[in-house]
Design a protein around this nucleic acid. Structure first.
Lengths: 125, 125
DNA sequence: TCAGCAAGTTAGATATGTCTAACCCTTCTA
DNA sequence: TAGAAGGGTTAGACATATCTAACTTGCTGA
C-alpha cells in the first residue's frame, strides 16, 4: 500500500482480516508493512482497537479479531470490494479503484452500501 | 448542512461559490452558517485559503474567489454533482447522496472523475 | 452619546493519525 | 556469553480541523 495516509480503525481491522486470511499469525510489524506505516503508529492504533474490544493480543504479540472486530472487518472489506467493483465497472483502472475504494468506504453509510449491493446484483457484476 | 465535520479547503471553496451564486456578498458568518461550523473555524480556514491565494477578502470582510480558487471550487462542485447523480441513480435518497458525495468527492482523483462523467453521459443521466 | 449587538480574530484546548528517537525484551549467533 | 537483530512500546512533536472563551471593532438605536 502507499501514498494516502490517515488510516482509520476500520483500515487496521481490514488489514488484520486480510493478513489472517493469508494463514499466518498476525503481528504488529505485519500490519505496519501492510499499511506502510511505522510500528509506533500501529502500536497506538492497536491500543485503541483493544480499548474498543475489537482485537485481542496474546503474550507473544499475536493479534486476533474479536467477534465485534471481525464483524466490522468483514463489513468493511465487503464495502471495499463492492466499491472497487463499481469503479472498475465504469472504467477506472484496478489499482486506482482499489486505492480510492479504501477512502470512499469510510464515507458511505448502510443505505448506500445496500443500494450498491443491489446494483451489482441486478447488473451481474 | 449537518453531522459530519472535518471540512477541507475544497468544502469552504464550494460553500463560497454556492453563496456567491445566491447573489449576496459573502461574509465569514455566512460560510459558518452554511457549513454549520463556528466563526473561529471559518476564520482559520479562510486564513489558509488566503495563503494559498484561493480567496481574497476586502476591507468590509466580503469574500471573493480568485481565479485559482474559482477553478477549484467549480471543479469540486462538479465532482459533487456527478457523485450525487450516480448515487441517486442506484437508488440512494437525495439527502444521503448529497451528504455522502461531499465526503466522497475528496477521495476520487482525476481519472475516476472523468470515468464518472463519461458514464453519466453514456447513460443519459 | 453610550450600551449592546453583530462580525471577525486570536488564544488555548481537544481529537485524530503519523513520525522519529529512544528504550525494553527476547532470541539467535559468533 | 555478549552483542546484534527483530518486535513492541512510550514520549514528544507535527499537521489538520474543531470548539469555547475572550477581545476588538464598528454600527445602531434609545
Amino acid at each position: 500500500m502507499k501514498k494516502k495516509k490517515g488510516n482509520s480503525s476500520e483500515d487496521y481491522l481490514k488489514a488484520i482480516l486480510n493478513l489472517q486470511k493469508s494463514g499466518k499469525n498476525v503481528r504488529a510489524v505485519d500490519i505496519a508493512d501492510a499499511l506502510d506505516v511505522t510500528k509506533p503508529s500501529v502500536s497506538v492504533a492497536l491500543k485503541k482497537l483493544k480499548a474498543k474490544e475489537m482485537i485481542c493480543q496474546d503474550a507473544n504479540g499475536f493479534i486476533g479479531l474479536t467477534e465485534k472486530g471481525s464483524t466490522l472487518a468483514v463489513k468493511t472489506t465487503n464495502k471495499h470490494r463492492i466499491i472497487t467493483k463499481l469503479l472498475t465497472g465504469i472504467g477506472v483502472n484496478n489499482k486506482t479503484a482499489a486505492e480510492e475504494a479504501c477512502l470512499i468506504e469510510h464515507a458511505i453509510g448502510e443505505e448506500t452500501y445496500e443500494r450498491m449491493e443491489e446494483y451489482c446484483k441486478n447488473n451481474n457484476m
